[in-house]
């Protein structure tokens, strides 16, 4: 069993009227099975309302399954006794950078998690320093978060989670409110954490470009996992992705269109370099 495993996970949002009668039931997650290996970089792709954020909240035990089971680090999220341990094992970064920073000074915010966990004072300081360094924000340690850019704030939020030394970190659309530069900054920081510290990353997003470097991809639509595999195998199925209202990266789309119009290019091209190589090969072959 991997670090995160879901078996037939179901989540229903139940809306009740004033007397407590059920008004409507909306199934946000519908019998989802996932299995994440420790140390992997996982991406969860999906359109708005596909249930991907609900899934993220389950991994942090912020929501409880309606049916099925979810194990995080071997612990069942349904048992309230495990909640605290699960939150220590799986950190979470949210979409809006402003609404998750608690303190008025960067370093104090990063120290908030360890403070809650009862870490001794000297160790908090070393953890704060290390995690700020790992996201490249050490020189802003005594700044006010209000003066930082969106990307910087989001990196502070990631540092705040890292200071709790989790085994796995869930990022729920961390770049949705950022400009292109901020997005790049945040993604670089996340990839670095995954590579250097071996933290398992679960990146939830609807930007295709962010998925390209992942180890494994789950595609969700209407609460179900509709596709899964390596980025290459996912993006080679352009038509199927479109069915689920998802775009493919521009380069992949271009390669796909070229192939459709008769050029002999492989499926699932992800980067500019790969396309260039494929085209060069084709050109040389033709002489």
């Amino acid at each position: 069993m991997g670090i995160i495993k879901a078996s037939k996970l179901v989540h229903e949002y139940i809306r009740r009227d004033e007397e407590g009668n059920v008004e409507s039931i909306q199934t946000a997650i519908d019998h989802v099975d996932i299995d994440v290996k420790a140390g992997d970089f996982i991406a969860v792709l999906g359109h708005n309302g596909s249930g991907k954020s609900t899934l993220a909240k389950h991994i942090n035990a912020l929501l409880e399954p309606s049916e099925g089971t979810l194990w995080v680090d071997g612990k069942d999220t349904k048992d309230p006794k495990n909640t605290y341990e699960i939150r220590r094992a799986a950190g979470m970064v949210f979409q809006n950078p402003d609404n998750q920073i608690i303190a008025t000074v960067v370093e104090e915010d990063v120290g908030f998690g360890p403070e809650n966990m009862g870490v001794p004072c000297e160790e908090i300081w070393t953890r704060v320093e290390e995690s700020l360094k790992s996201v490249g924000m050490l020189k802003y340690r005594s700044h006010s978060p209000n003066k930082l850019s969106g990307g910087q704030k989001q990196r502070v939020a990631i540092a705040g989670v890292m200071a709790m030394e989790p085994k796995c970190i869930v990022l729920d659309e961390p770049t949705a409110m950022l400009d292109p530069n901020g997005r790049k900054e945040v993604l670089r920081a996340v990839h670095e954490l995954n590579r250097k510290k071996g933290v398992t990353v679960i990146l939830i997003t609807h930007y295709m470009e962010e998925v390209v470097d992942a180890d494994y991809v789950y595609v969700m639509d209407k609460g179900q996992v509709v596709m899964q595999g390596t980025p290459r195998s996912i993006f080679s199925q352009v038509e199927k992705l479109k069915e689920h209202r998802l775009d493919v990266p521009q380069i992949t789309l271009l390669a796909h269109e070229l192939k459709k119009s008769g050029l002999a290019i492989a499926d699932g091209i992800l980067t500019r370099e790969e396309l260039l190589e494929a085209l060069e090969k084709l050109y040389h072959r033709k002489g």
Binding site: N60, F94, N96, E107, F112
Partner: peptide
């Protein structure tokens, strides 16, 4: 809405009130 988000973010970072908390700057 912000309050709701913030409460969730605090809970996700193991906040359970003042009990058992240590201080970074005591």
């Amino acid at each position: 809405r912000r309050a709701d988000d913030l409460a969730m973010a605090m809970e996700a970072r193991c906040y359970v009130g003042g009990e058992g908390r240590t201080r970074m700057k005591p």
